[in-house]
Amino acid sequence: MIVGIGSDLIDIRRIERTLERFGERFTMRVFTEVERTKSDRRAMRAASYAKRFAAKEACSKALGSGIRMGVAWREMGVVNLRSGQPTMHLAGGARTRLEALIPPGHVPSIHLTMTDDHPIAQAFVVIEALPQEVDREL
């Protein structure tokens, strides 16, 4: 069952200006180490950061909290599965909020899609509660 949906659009030029003005102060405050490493290696660095920023905003909306209610920027991070598919890793208050949304007997699954077409970056997040598998060896 779907327990949360969020989307966000951001102007890549806004992130570009923020990176020029605040640099590492901005990236250290908002992004995880994994996100910074990945984005700093990209030729289109601002677009990479913009997609991740949009993903955090979309995730906070799917959590129903926004960037408040105990949910902080670096508690939500874009990570890639082995297949390359992006998803969100949640920690701290974001993880606590996620767990509050998931009914007993279910486990969370976070679906993420990101895209950019200069000057816009976009992300969608769907949080799903999947039935927990029963231990068949009982």
Rank of each mutant, 00 (worst) to 15 (best):
R68P: 10
I102F: 04
S48M: 04
A58F: 00
G84S: 08
R14K: 10
G84K: 06
H118P: 05
P131Y: 10
R74F: 01
L81S: 07
Q132K: 15
A94Y: 00
A58C: 08
S48N: 10
D40E: 13
V3P: 08
A94V: 05
L130F: 09
P108M: 10
G23V: 04
V134F: 11
R25D: 09
T96I: 12
A121L: 07
G4Y: 00
S60I: 11
A94S: 09
L90W: 07
H111I: 11
L101N: 03
F124Y: 13
M69R: 15
A129D: 06
D116G: 08
A55I: 01
T32I: 01
N80T: 13
M69H: 15
G66A: 12
R95C: 08
L90F: 12
V79P: 01
V134Q: 13
S109P: 04
G77F: 00
C59S: 11
H111Y: 14
R41F: 07
F26H: 04
E128V: 06
E133L: 13
S83M: 07
V79Q: 01
I12V: 09
G6Q: 01
M1L: 14
H118R: 11
R29F: 05
R45D: 07
D135V: 14
L138Q: 14
S65V: 04
E137K: 15
H106M: 08
G64M: 08
L9V: 10
L101Q: 03
Y49G: 02
R52D: 01
K38I: 13
P108L: 10
A91M: 12
G92C: 08
G105E: 11
V107H: 13
V107R: 15
E99C: 09
L19G: 00
R68H: 15
G105Q: 05
L9D: 12
R25C: 07
H111N: 13
L63H: 03
P104S: 05
V79R: 02
A62C: 11
I120Q: 13
D135S: 14
M44I: 12
R82T: 08
W73F: 09
E16I: 04
A72E: 14
P86N: 06
F124R: 01
V71T: 05
S83L: 08
H89P: 00
R52S: 06
V125S: 10
F26V: 02
V3W: 06
R25S: 11
L19N: 01
T37M: 07
P86Q: 03
L138R: 12
L19H: 05
Q85A: 15
H106G: 05
T37S: 07
I102M: 05
I67H: 02
T115K: 13
I2S: 07
L81Q: 11
L90C: 07
G6H: 02
P119E: 10
T115Y: 03
R52N: 03
A72T: 12
D135R: 15
E20R: 15
E75Y: 03
G6F: 01
G66N: 11
M1P: 15
K51G: 08
R82I: 09
